[in-house]
Design a protein around this nucleic acid. Structure first.
Lengths: 203, 203
DNA sequence: TTGTTCAACTAAACAGTGTTCAGTAAATTT
DNA sequence: AAATTTACTGAACACTGTTTAGTTGAACAA
């Protein structure tokens, strides 16, 4: 009896369709404009239908942000292929992170700035994809500490610090707090900032 | 003829009343809950009245965020009183910044994370209060570089980097991305992170 | 004092949001 | 063929920011 299997497939397909449409709209027009009604309109279903596949908007965008993490984790993995020096690995991961943010600003915003995805795992649940991504950084930092290439001794303090530094740069840019530096130069300044920071924390 | 002066005073008073009520509601209940209607309700005027004093919600919250900057700038000024060593000054300013964020999370959010205040100065206008605050950091960094106490040579790269680091820490906390570390330990970890960073960039 | 002007204010509406629920219609099972 | 289950939706609810036409009372000029 393949009917229940086909139904299950249909259900997953529909879920994916909603997810991809949500992602598409919000990448093109931002989180604000990605309303349930706009998504429903584009897939030609009623808004109420979306609630048969997702508990609420937060849960829907939690799933979208998970797709973002899949991409970021992939890119941060590819970035270090063939690199042996731990500091070079750290640089590669840092620039992969920044590149992702530049190329997918709306997605970065959702993953690391917006409240929505975190609201959906408030209490009880866990931010698995976030931790997975953080783990990549920890692995690199671990190597740096082991080989005595970095001015940190604690992996978690180091990882927390470096992540915060990178996120600070990127999120101040995304949320327009670097207005002062001008759209034209800010990206170059940010890259210099990362480069200098790596030089300073290396030993 | 003091009538037009009294009217001007009344107008300013009303403006301030709206501003303070907006601040109050949003500090207590967050940005989302601080709706025009909620503010209007509390001051016992109709929502439309608010639009006689502010162009839109963005402009209203731009003014609220300016009050936040007045406070932050004051605290970051007081914090360094009596300190002569530039690195100690940097530490004091860093911890004053972090303390402000811990004690006024909603206001910090508005000042450095929310889009609203920046939307109201999009194009043409300038983020004066933000630049003023950044200038304080630059002054301290300048001293550090002049006295050769810090591993940076460029003031702007240094200031940008240190601000980004601090903002990254604070904003990841505020937007719940440090879930992993647990509510109980995260504040201590953040302080250690700042302490270590200062140790590393000092020379 | 009267009539007029002007400013402050608001009720009501518009267009949008997330979300819920009763009801329909078709597919599946008995 | 009848009963049940499933997928879906129209319409409503309670909100949001914002605009506009209209009211009311104070200030001014005759």
């Amino acid at each position: 009896m393949g009917i229940i299997e086909r139904k299950e497939r249909d259900k997953q397909e529909m879920r994916l369709k909603i997810l991809e449409t949500a992602q598409q709209i919000f990448i093109e027009e931002g989180f604000e404009k990605a309303s349930i009604r706009a998504i429903a309109d584009r897939i030609e279903y009623s808004p109420a239908t979306i609630y048969l596949y997702f508990k609420d908007k937060n849960e829907l965008f939690f799933s979208v942000h998970e797709m973002g993490f899949e991409k970021l984790i992939l890119e941060m993995t590819i970035a270090i292929e063939g690199i042996t020096d731990p500091i070079e690995e750290l640089r590669a991961r840092g620039f992969a992170y920044m590149k992702f943010a530049f190329q997918n600003p709306e997605m970065y915003d959702l993953m690391f700035i917006q409240n929505a995805p975190m609201e959906s795992i408030k209490e009880s649940s866990v931010w698995t994809c976030g931790h997975q991504c953080f783990e990549l950084l920890c692995q690199t930092i671990q190597k740096c500490i082991d080989q005595n290439y970095i001015r940190f001794d604690d992996i978690y303090i180091a990882s927390m610090s470096i992540w915060s530094f990178m996120h600070g740069l990127v999120s101040l840019k995304i949320r327009n707090r670097f207005q002062k530096f001008g759209e034209a130069h800010v990206n170059e300044l940010m890259k210099s900032s990362v480069e200098q920071m790596i030089a300073i924390i290396s030993k």
